[in-house]
Each structure stands twice: as structure tokens, then as C-alpha cells.
Computed example of a mutant assay.
Amino acid sequence: MSVINRKSVGVVLLSALLLGVLYCYMYQPNRVFGDVGVRRENGRPGDDDIAASNDLHLVAPAHLQYKQPSIIHGRGDVVTVTPWLSPVVWEGTFNAVLLDSIYRPKNISIAATVFAVGKYIKFLKDFLETAEQHFFVGFKVHVYVFTDRPDEVPRVRMAAGRQLTVRPVPSSQRWQEISARRMELIQLLIEEQPRRANSYIFCLDVDSKFHGRWGTESLGGLVAVIHPGYYRDDRSRFPYERRPASRAHLAAGEGDFYYCGGAFGGLLQEVHQLAKTCRANFEDDAKEGIEAAWQEESHLNRYMWINKPSKVLSPEYLWQDFKSRNPEIQIIRFSGVIKNYAEIRPNV
């Protein structure tokens, strides 16, 4: 073979190799979570892709009748879409009957985590009883209670298709440590679950009660709840972690909203990545003697600044009982109860 032919063959082979590498790069299901890239374990489309696809494919019953929607009339007192085009859910922005009819055939399952550690166990009964009345009524729900007092978990009658599992955890002398460990425990819980389509999880504060519907309108890939204490404020007043040394750091001029650490959720794989990333960043901070201003809530806000939530829930979904209701709050769905922190926290 001539030298020219050898060179031609070499160029062809090199071009084929480069095209192969480019194809793998373009179609490998990678995604960026936080500040690092994470590759799916099997390197091919799988349950994660199925779940994401089913979450987006919304099929309504053929003969369901409901009020005609309008694109020119609706809530004019609040913003109902973010700058990255995710819905902001308020009363009056969705049709509950329509949404339930779309999601019921999908055979979705909802997990909910709640931490009742130390004296916070006193709030668990109201949480569970009101969840039976308002939280995904008519759907499969599995509540996981993390507590250091398993013998004190109240007996609450649950509807068919709903169940409760108690997960013992150690107690702590610092409420900050209890708060910080939540991401680790949520991560480990999700890793135990079978990977299947249409599995969602919501992580909720125990010292809260349901007052109104919380249902299929809240479903999404990654779901955040806007904090009721700051939603009218300029972001310069948000209690973000401001120290650059922390991995939860948000600089001046950064941040969209201030999200609650007491209510967030989404598809299992999305919440797993959130919990895994926040846990890793928290632990890396701890190795350097840093604890973020509001523990896991600070890391959650950093995460969601980079990884935008696909659905944002208005402050209806975690109000505070001590606050008077503002005019735009037409309904309170879930709210933190009034409490004496000196009484219930091991340290204040």
C-alpha cells in the first residue's frame, strides 16, 4: 500500500473514531447537578427516562367536561410563571378534577418523609391526621416517620392504599444536627426504593398541619416551595449563606426566590440528586469547620439556584400560623404551627 493510501485510511479511521466519541458524548444521558457532573449508573436510558417522560405526557379522559380555560383571564395579582417558564402554583391556576383524572391512570405513588425527633414528636399526630384529610387524597401514599421515639408514634387510621413506616434514628443535643442529617437520611431512603416510573417524594416539616388540598397540582420533576417569610422581599434580604468559603454560598445579585427547607419534593431521582449533592456539600463544609447559616435549607437554596425547579409552589403550601394572611393568599394548604422553640429544641 502506498504512503498516500495509508494516510487516507488513517484519516478515515481517525474521523470515524472522532464521530463515535462525539455521538457518545451527545447521547450519553448526563446531567449537571449542583456544581458537578453526575453520570447515570447504567449509562443508558432506563427508569429515570421513563419517569421523566411519563411526567410530561399528560393524557386526559376523552369525555371529561370542565370549565373552559382562558389565557386572557385569570390571577392578575400574582406571578404564575418563573423566568425559566416553570409554573408557580396558586389557588385559581389549576383544575383539580382535571389534574386528578390525568394522574390517576398513571398509578403514581407518593412518599412523604417527616422527622419527629425529640419533643417534635408532639406535632406528629396532627400532621398525620390532617395529611389523611388533605394530602394526595385518593392516591397511594407512604409516609416515612424518622424518630428517636418510635414507641410514641401515634396510631392514626389511614385510608386504603396509604401506609406508615417508622424509621428509628438517634437523638441529638443540637437541633442543627437534626436538621442537617435530613438530607443524608432522605438520600439513603431513596436509594432503597425500587426505580420505577411515577414515583414521587415530598419532604415535609412535622411541626405543620394541612388545612387544604395538596395534590396532583404539585407534581413535577423538582418541586420547590417559596418561603412565606420572604416572598415579598428583595433578594438582598434573603437569609442565604453569604460567606464565599461555604459551598452553600450565594453572592449579592444571585438567587431567584427563597425556598423552604421544610417542604420540597419531586420525582425520586431528582430529589435523590438534590439530597446527595446537598449532603456532600454540607459534609465538605463541615470538614473545614463551616456550618451554613440555615443548614440544609441554605444548601437547598444554592442547589436550586443552579438546578431550577420545574414547578414552584406558592406560599400557600407552607404558610406560618403566626402570620396574618396577605390578600394574595386565597387559601392556606399547609402551615407551620405556633410553638415555643425554647421548649421543644434541645438547644436554642
Rank of each mutant, 00 (worst) to 15 (best):
I71E: 06
H249D: 02
S70I: 05
Q269L: 02
H73K: 15
A293W: 12
G255V: 07
Y23Q: 10
F282L: 13
G20V: 09
I201T: 06
Y103E: 09
E270A: 09
C260M: 13
F257I: 02
M1S: 13
Q320F: 11
R213E: 09
F202V: 13
G43A: 08
P228C: 07
E184C: 05
A252H: 15
Q68L: 10
K323M: 13
Q176R: 11
E177C: 00
P45Q: 04
A342W: 12
D234E: 08
R243M: 09
I306D: 08
E217V: 01
F146H: 07
I110Y: 03
F127N: 06
N347Q: 13
R182A: 10
A51I: 01
L98A: 07
A263N: 15
I338T: 15
L18K: 08
S15D: 02
Y103V: 01
A60V: 05
M158E: 00
P228S: 14
K67P: 05
S86V: 05
A116E: 14
V223A: 04
G220D: 11
H73S: 14
Y240L: 09
A224G: 10
V97Y: 01
R232T: 10
A224Y: 09
F33I: 01
N307T: 02
L189M: 15
Q330D: 09
N107R: 10
K125W: 00
S53W: 15
A342Y: 15
R40H: 02
R155T: 15
K311N: 04
K209G: 02
A52Y: 14
F202W: 10
Y103P: 00
L188T: 06
L250P: 04
L58C: 03
R162C: 05
R243P: 00
G220E: 06
R104S: 10
Q193M: 13
L274Y: 07
A111K: 05
C24K: 11
A160S: 14
I186R: 09
F334A: 03
F136Y: 14
W305N: 05
F127V: 04
Y144P: 00
V206N: 11
I50T: 08
A159E: 14
R196E: 12
Q187L: 13
L58H: 08
S298P: 06
I338A: 14
M26Y: 10
P87V: 07
A159T: 07
N198A: 02
D47F: 01
I331Y: 02
L22V: 13
P244F: 05
I331V: 11
C260I: 03
Q133H: 10
V223S: 15
T130L: 03
A280H: 10
F123E: 03
R157M: 02
I108W: 01
D285I: 12
L14T: 11
Y27M: 08
D205M: 03
Y231I: 00
V143Y: 06
L222F: 04
R31P: 00
G43F: 06
A293Y: 12
K276M: 07
V36C: 03
Q173M: 09
V9G: 01
A342C: 08
A263R: 02
F123G: 07
Y27V: 12
A180P: 00
S171Q: 06
G10E: 11
E254G: 05
